[in-house]
Design a protein around this nucleic acid. Structure first.
Lengths: 242, 242
DNA sequence: GCCGATTTGTCCGTATGTATC
DNA sequence: CGATACATACGGACAAATCGG
């Protein structure tokens, strides 16, 4: 599948908005205009529009014209979005990054771990701990638990590169869904040892479960972020209950 | 509009999943089965399915059967999701809540504020600061800046209740979109004064811009959350680039 | 205040492509 | 290989909300 039509339309509209071809708080072309321009059905166009709305580029309302509400965020901060590996996110922002493996072990899921990670009790796992450096600063402490049976032959050498690359390209695994949960926690001894916490005594913790295409959870992750370089964006739409 | 068909279908499927009518990691009925069951077109069903996928209830893949990946989270925590007011979120969790207005003033947007909030320079605004108590504990410090022209006659009394109620029900304003950005910041003197920070010296800050149906931003908000009671959930789907 | 044109929201039926089993 | 399942796309229809004359 080359690329879906609705997706190329979405990307085109998105770029036009980002390039400022429509003024912020300005009016966006009507559906009838756009279907003519992109030579597509209304259903296809609306699918692209839905994504623009969801991501906070435009606003729409029955009877009303659509409006552009996009505003460029001048921050070049390290952002989280989608299921994106550290490598991908860093590359997207044109940053120098280094990963260092500080722990690599094979373990068995006990009751405590099972409860926290929802990985099946008694299964074998690899535990990997890595520190992520961005532009020389220790930024993230990553703790990954992988099901051994899902990630055979994982080695520290692989972990030193991109594990997701290995999973997708070497093992042909298809990663599909990921649940994430963000909280703020006290810094642990481990955090203080590896991250230069300065006078911060807390950090942002993103914990997540990742599922492959077979529908089984094969990973639990905890990313412990230095507060200064953590940012998470989101746009929400309120449904009208009337 | 009573309720859209795709939405009632979504809700029904969602509840069935939550009630455990399908086992987690179990198989979800095929589209053909569901269109028959709900007596709807495929397009409508797929719209409901898309939402289930987006919210992390099920997983789908071309050629494969859909799978349930929902797992109940035992959260008694205070969660953020959608554009939800403090009142709504507290009520949803059956909690006692109190709001206390600690500051109410009229001001003018200067350059510094304009840059931070992206509210128009020179416009008149109300600045409201409120402390939110949940079950007696000071939990959130809310700082709101409202455009005066959009929120006429705002008073401390109204701020003491639900401002969003006032906007929607009294003024008939339709709130549509909201951009939010989450970061972790050092606690300020104001934070320490009003929130019982204990030995935490940071908190979770959610800042957001809110737009009404006219497409103009009428609010800038900063919610400063006590770390212990802050939680944000998210599910992401990886797009296949092939 | 009403009416009609415009615009978005919802829904349907059908056809074809493509990955999986 | 065929059967099954999901993914994408089209065209048509009607409803509901908005806005201007």
């Amino acid at each position: 599948m080359p690329t879906a039509k609705f997706e190329t339309i979405y990307k085109d509209m998105k770029e036009k908005i980002e390039k400022g071809m429509y003024q912020s708080e300005g009016i966006f072309p009507a559906e009838s205009t756009l279907t003519a321009e992109y030579d597509c059905s209304r259903a296809t166009l609306r699918r692209a529009l839905a994504r623009l709305i969801e991501r906070g580029y435009i606003q729409a309302g029955q009877g009303r014209r659509m409006r552009v509400i996009y505003q460029p965020t001048e921050q070049h901060e390290f952002m989280i979005g989608g299921i994106e590996s550290f490598r991908e996110a860093a590359a997207r922002n044109h940053f120098q990054f280094v990963t260092r493996v500080i722990h690599f072990a094979e373990e068995v899921v006990d009751e405590k771990i099972a409860k926290k990670t929802s990985l099946p009790l008694g299964s074998n796992i690899y535990e990997v701990r890595r520190v992520r450096y961005l532009e020389g600063k220790a930024l993230i402490l990553d703790i990954n638990l992988f099901l051994c049976e899902a990630v055979p032959n994982l080695t520290p050498e692989i972990a030193n590169g991109s594990i997701y690359d290995y999973l997708e390209n070497e093992l042909g695994m298809v990663i599909v869904t990921s649940h994430r949960r963000m909280t703020v926690e006290h810094a642990t001894a481990l955090d203080n040892k590896w991250l230069e916490m300065g006078d911060y005594n807390c950090l942002a913790v993103v914990s997540g479960r990742t599922y492959n295409a077979a529908g089984i959870q094969f990973e639990y992750t905890q990313s412990r972020h230095h507060p200064e370089y953590f940012c998470f964006e989101d746009t929400a739409t309120r449904r009208r209950t009337r």
